[in-house]
Amino acid sequence: MRVLHVAECFAAGVRTAMLEYIASTPMVEHIVVAADRGEPMPESCDGYRVIAMADGHLARIRQVRELCQALHPTLIHAHSSFAGVYARIGCGDVPVVYTPHCFGFERGDLSIAARRVLWMVERSLARRTAVIAACSRREAHLAQRIGASSICIPNVGRFGEGISHDVIEESRNGVSEVAFMGRITPQKDPGFALEAVRRITSLGDGRVRFEWIGDGTAADRARLEDAGVRVTGWLPAQEVAAELSKCAVYVHTAAWEGFPMAVLEASQLGLPIVARAIPALDGMPEEFLGDDPETVAAIAVQTISAPHTPGACATRWDEALSGNTRDNQRDALLTAYSQATGRATQEG
């Protein structure tokens, strides 16, 4: 089986999720056509090869069509909204598996009118989609609402075997470090994070440090740094793990998501997690979710300060994420791919 992955947003969580899909299915030949979004490209290309994506929307649709003619992929796996458009228009008779990694009409930074347009676009393109490979129960539910066949593909983190919470405790040297992570964009809502920082600082005993693992524009970075949040910039996976492992709690503040890779990675490292309550986190531990910065901050401070809460919190998240395994991901992906090619054969 040869899979052509199309990714306009080959960055941050989408890239991590894609590379884990590839790692989970070594029996498949993977070819990635991707755009450089100004972030470091993967350190290696083990198990796949990369083709640079053309510039411009029409050129990218044309490129997908030409690659299908030249490479004869078994199917296309499109990742995120723009790539979903390119793939489903340019695919010809090649079946398309589509992972939105959060549908565009879920974006809270767009007007209601724009979101309605995106809804109509997705509904229209559902007819050209063999399977939506949803990364969460929320995404699978939305796929059904737009009339598409769907299967849930659990995301998995990139850190494999984690370290124990005892090691994390010892590494803090008496100072509680609170981590945020991701690309500094409206989706990750740095404003929500900054308000949580202010609340945690006011509620804590002063022995708290904050860091944002990731990067963004100079202005967004300065906004965090001016509030006392250290911004690490983009780091290799090993250094991300090292930074997270020093922290007392990981706080996830995104306003919308497909399913957050950062939460999975924090859980793999045994970290307690406190998160903003968003639909993508349906089924996660409710006692560690908050609707607003005040609630998130209060839960974070309680998690840090109570003697047994950090371990209990980490355990609850580990239990909630117990289905996000490599084996489950591989089986679900192969089922989606088989379903897509089977459907294409039947329609043909």
Results as ranks from 00 to 15, higher is better:
A222G: 03
A320P: 03
C102E: 11
V50T: 12
E66T: 02
T325L: 02
Q346Y: 11
R2W: 04
A12Q: 04
A196W: 03
I151D: 12
W234Q: 05
H101Y: 13
R230C: 14
L118M: 12
R37T: 09
R230G: 09
R158P: 02
V121D: 00
E170R: 15
H30V: 11
M41Y: 07
F10Q: 07
E122Q: 06
D36W: 00
M181Q: 13
G342K: 01
A140C: 13
R88N: 02
H308E: 15
R127C: 09
I112W: 14
I168F: 01
Q144F: 05
E243V: 04
Y21D: 10
V6E: 09
M261P: 05
A300T: 14
I153P: 07
S124L: 15
G311K: 11
R330Q: 15
R158N: 09
P272Q: 06
I151E: 14
G108L: 13
T335E: 15
A218L: 07
L269K: 03
L75P: 11
A12Y: 01
Q329I: 09
P154R: 09
G182W: 00
G290F: 01
V121Y: 01
S111R: 00
A254Q: 10
L224H: 02
S305Y: 05
R172K: 11
P95T: 12
P272A: 06
P236C: 06
W317I: 04
E170S: 15
C68I: 05
V32T: 05
I132N: 11
E43N: 08
W119S: 04
S150G: 05
M261K: 02
V296I: 14
T129A: 10
P260E: 10
A275R: 02
P279V: 08
F259L: 10
M53T: 01
A35W: 04
E39G: 02
R65A: 15
S81P: 12
P293R: 04
L333C: 10
G84K: 02
A254L: 05
P95E: 09
E170A: 15
V6H: 08
G92K: 12
C247S: 15
A113Y: 03
T315V: 00
G162P: 08
R37Y: 03
G104P: 07
V240H: 04
R49W: 00
E177I: 10
E243Y: 12
D318I: 03
Q329W: 08
T74R: 05
A262E: 00
V240N: 04
N328L: 04
R276I: 04
P95F: 13
R183V: 06
R316M: 11
S136C: 06
A196R: 00
S111D: 05
I304D: 04
A133H: 07
V28R: 10
E139H: 06
F259K: 00
Q346D: 10
G147Y: 11
A196V: 14
G348V: 09
S80A: 15
A241V: 02
G311E: 07
S81R: 03
A126W: 08
V14W: 08
A11M: 10
T295E: 13
